Simulated assay, not measured.
Amino acid sequence: MAVNVMRVVRSDLWIDPAFDQSFQGRQDVVLDVFPRNGPAEAAWAVLERAHVYQCSAAKDELPRQWFATEQLLQRCPQLLCVSSTGAGYDTIDVAACTKAGVAVVNQAGGNAASVAEQTFGLMLGVSRRMLECDRRLRREQGFGRESVMGHEIRGKTLGIVGIGHVGTRVAALARAFGMEVLATDPLLESAEITRRGASPVTLDELLARSDVVSLHCPRDPTTLRMIDAGAFARMKRGSIFITTARGGIHDEAALAAALASGHLAGAGVDVWDKEPPPLDHPLLQRDNVFATFHTAGVTHEARRNMATIAAQQILQLLAGERPPRLINPQVWPAFRARLLAAARQGRGQEPVAAA
């Protein structure tokens, strides 16, 4: 179903050119870009006409006034879809979108290979103490190689918290390294976890048995501070904590305490409460913490893939086709009705309104 001319809007935050290129030469889609730090009036002039908002998932890069909140939706009555630039959607109020009849899509899986690779980079870096060795080589002479002796991951047990697109890829890599793989995921049946390459266990069992615990779950009200001081205490002494999920799922102060006490051997941290973290952050002061700046999914290949998937899903939605990564499937009847109304409005019949 063609819908005359529809307006796709994004901020001027960087996105791979594949996104914009996907709409070039089309007669039915116009792409507009608004300045996120410029005059608010200029941004609203663009957003208020939008049918689709490509919303950055970078919560600490996108000014809060441009988050897809109930207030923004009220000012953008023609909005049919909010598309996250990433797998996460911390900048989008999904409940408010659903209430307004606005579809929400993300790009889950588009960067799975990149995130899984970095997960193992962090894991190997911490287990083999590569980062510690690198730092000591740059600042001192005369230390023995045995003082930075690490451990192989072969034969160790990896516990995956959340075995979705990324977790499944991590499980495959772990088996290639000769690791035993455990997983917990409240959204999946045990048989499906097994099919994805892991032995299903409870979170408590995973924490108690794993030599490495790696987070790959979404950030939502059920997972915030899920890995707290009690969870770190239940992990094996000498184990390693890895997260490439989202900041806020683990308690940063509790992690710092578990490392300082020697209960944990090290950590690989890609995601933070505040990104980037302050320079005096306790975790950044420790040589056994491999710290990165939410870059697990930031590769040329992943960014291009995410941008391409986003554009494809937007075009599917505007054609009336249900996209594969619809976050709020219950909105579909209301979305379809509003899409039809937008088509009629485009033919000069009647206005479209939020549900």
Score class of each variant (00 low, 15 high):
residue 104 V to W: 01
residue 205 E to M: 00
residue 74 Q to G: 11
residue 298 V to R: 01
residue 25 G to E: 05
residue 152 E to Q: 14
residue 191 A to S: 15
residue 262 G to S: 14
residue 105 V to Y: 10
residue 134 D to V: 14
residue 78 Q to H: 14
residue 185 D to P: 13
residue 235 M to P: 03
residue 244 T to S: 00
residue 116 A to V: 10
residue 128 R to A: 03
residue 211 D to Q: 04
residue 7 R to L: 05
residue 85 T to N: 03
residue 189 E to V: 12
residue 39 P to F: 01
residue 126 V to R: 01
residue 36 R to E: 14
residue 14 W to E: 06
residue 291 A to Y: 00
residue 273 D to H: 14
residue 173 L to G: 15
residue 208 A to Y: 04
residue 74 Q to T: 13
residue 195 R to V: 12
residue 122 L to P: 07
residue 35 P to D: 13
residue 75 R to V: 09
residue 302 A to Q: 01
residue 57 A to P: 03
residue 308 T to S: 08
residue 343 A to P: 00
residue 139 R to G: 06
residue 335 F to A: 04
residue 167 G to L: 08
residue 157 T to P: 05
residue 25 G to A: 07
residue 16 D to F: 02
residue 266 G to C: 12
residue 250 H to V: 03
residue 270 D to W: 09
residue 292 T to W: 12
residue 134 D to T: 14
residue 113 A to C: 01
residue 110 G to V: 10
residue 302 A to M: 07
residue 40 A to G: 08
residue 199 S to I: 02
residue 24 Q to P: 00
residue 280 D to S: 02
residue 53 Y to N: 09
residue 287 D to R: 10
residue 226 M to R: 14
residue 29 V to D: 10
residue 49 R to C: 02
residue 250 H to Y: 15
residue 80 L to P: 10
residue 67 F to S: 03
residue 38 G to C: 05
residue 303 R to T: 11
residue 187 L to D: 15
residue 207 L to I: 13
residue 314 I to M: 10
residue 135 R to A: 08
residue 96 A to M: 03
residue 136 R to M: 13
residue 261 S to N: 09
residue 219 R to D: 05
residue 328 N to E: 12
residue 53 Y to H: 11
residue 18 A to Q: 08
residue 232 F to L: 00
residue 97 C to L: 02
residue 47 L to N: 08
residue 146 E to P: 01
residue 163 I to V: 10
residue 296 A to M: 06
residue 120 F to G: 10
residue 282 P to R: 02
residue 228 D to P: 13
residue 315 L to S: 06
residue 22 S to N: 07
residue 123 M to K: 07
residue 88 G to C: 03
residue 87 A to F: 00
residue 314 I to C: 04
residue 231 A to N: 05
residue 180 E to W: 00
residue 73 L to R: 07
residue 226 M to P: 06
residue 324 P to T: 15
residue 143 F to R: 06
residue 336 R to I: 11
residue 21 Q to L: 11
residue 314 I to E: 11
residue 80 L to T: 06
residue 96 A to L: 02
